[in-house]
Design a protein around this nucleic acid. Structure first.
Lengths: 266, 266
DNA sequence: TAGTGGTCTAGACCACCGC
DNA sequence: CGGTGGTCTAGACCACTAG
């Protein structure tokens, strides 16, 4: 017992084959998740206490505590002092995690032909309307960029973006010939915060012309506003043409969130 | 030193005011997050090793390890044996977390008048089209429910749902008078897995009539398919009228994901 | 090969709160 | 009051891998 490592090994040796050589904590975590996700332990049910797990798995309390803390952080269980740990009640039917990826990198990973066209690139002053929407002062110097994303020679998305010239001074010298603005920003503004909205829009004549669809066709618009350290970085509308595109996301209660963004042709 | 608790207290006493009485791990975590999010530590930078943190915060290695493990799980840092821990490179411009809430509960929390109307409720056999889309056998017995959600006497969303009568047998006796199908399912199918897609759609005459909008108006459609233990539970299209509604989500790299779903009138 | 993280132990003190 | 979780310690053995 002086050598904890060998004690752990003894447990591992119960496993006839080294089937992945799961650690004690992984084993406990898997077992608890199985019981919850299978419905064997229903929402509101009390699960064993830490000391009970200690006995059952012949391990120390810290090991159990780590597992239950993780499950608690992920929202699968709720822990209350004195009362015990309980299977959490799902508060929402489900949740959805959209990972907003980079067009170019995405296409490259799938072996699809991608290119982008810069339709406009010029310094501007932030319009009153946009400023109000962003809760910023009008007249803020920004770089306005209009960009068309083309996948397999089909218009894929239309991007209307402004970038703060104050916050991202380096963008003044960038032409976006080598890469689209979103990709460029990835390398220059790390770990920002963002707010997203998704809405549906009837295409006007201009937009329809750019995307090669009919006027009034429904479009999906993803708006993203990004800040870094509380300062405005960029505001972008990405418009996907018509009904031929979807945003998809997957949720799994066991893994936390499995993420996917897909905008396929249908 | 025999009493670790008092050692911890000594650290706490360094705090002149009991400003929340942050634990050592919370302090370390906050400091690391600050350095990463502020850009002080750039993506790819090596952060101090566990032993360096031990020295700096005068605490044990387990305490440091817990913090760094959590940050690693959340994707803020990447840990490599022998090499050290590094600030992670954001793989995507941002991410979006949509919490799909319950209409009725949502409205109640905001003090808004909500009601729902069941437009149709009948047992059906799964259509070939829907079965193919769900990768299920056609003819599966399901309950088909069409439901209109009304907020402040305005059509808010139109719901077209099928529920597996095999998987959710109890639904056969449910009329959904007291609560809409989504709310009912919350209490009967815990911890399911779901796949979501969001798309834009031009309203046809029927849909336009139901939602009180013009034909061809753009609508936002949220599709959710739910499974439990690998078995199909429900498939639902929730259609929001026109451009007057948005789905919004917020992302913060520090908190992981801050969640919000809002479908406001504009 | 040595530094680093991965995991575990057998304790400890404490706050909280249901009984 | 006592059981429970929250947090921490001062070690330990090990696997991995960069130098």
């Amino acid at each position: 017992m002086i050598a904890p490592g060998s004690a752990a090994r003894a447990v591992d040796e119960d496993d006839p084959r080294g089937t992945g050589a799961a650690s004690i904590s992984e084993t406990i975590q898997r077992d608890v998740e199985m019981n919850i996700v299978s419905g064997n332990w229903a929402p509101g049910d009390r699960i064993p206490s830490e000391s009970e797990f200690m006995t059952q798995y012949n391990c120390s309390r810290m090991t159990v505590n780590r597992v239950l803390s993780r499950l608690s952080e992920r929202g699968l269980i709720v822990r209350r002092r004195k009362a015990g740990s309980f299977v959490a009640t799902p508060r929402n039917d489900s949740a959805m995690f959209l990972e907003i990826r980079d067009f170019a990198r995405e296409a490259a990973g799938q072996g699809r032909r991608y290119r982008h066209e810069i339709l406009l690139r010029r310094p501007e002053r932030l319009s009153d309307k946009r400023a109000a929407s962003l809760r910023l002062e009008p007249g803020l110097p920004v770089l306005r960029v209009l960009c068309l994303h083309v996948l397999e020679d089909q218009p894929h998305a239309y991007e209307d973006r402004v970038i703060s010239l104050q916050k991202v001074a380096a963008v003044a010298g960038e032409t976006f010939e080598a890469m689209p603005p979103g990709t460029w920003l990835l390398g220059h503004v790390p770990w920002s915060e963002a707010r997203h909205t998704i809405r549906a829009l009837n295409a006007d004549a201009t937009l329809a012309g750019i995307l090669g669809i009919a006027e009034r066709d429904a479009c999906l618009v993803l708006n993203r506003r990004t800040w870094h350290q509380g300062e405005f970085v960029t505001d972008v509308d990405i418009t996907y043409p018509g009904e031929g595109h979807e945003l998809t996301g997957q949720f799994s209660s066991t893994t936390g969130q499995t993420t996917a963004l897909d905008v396929p042709h249908r």
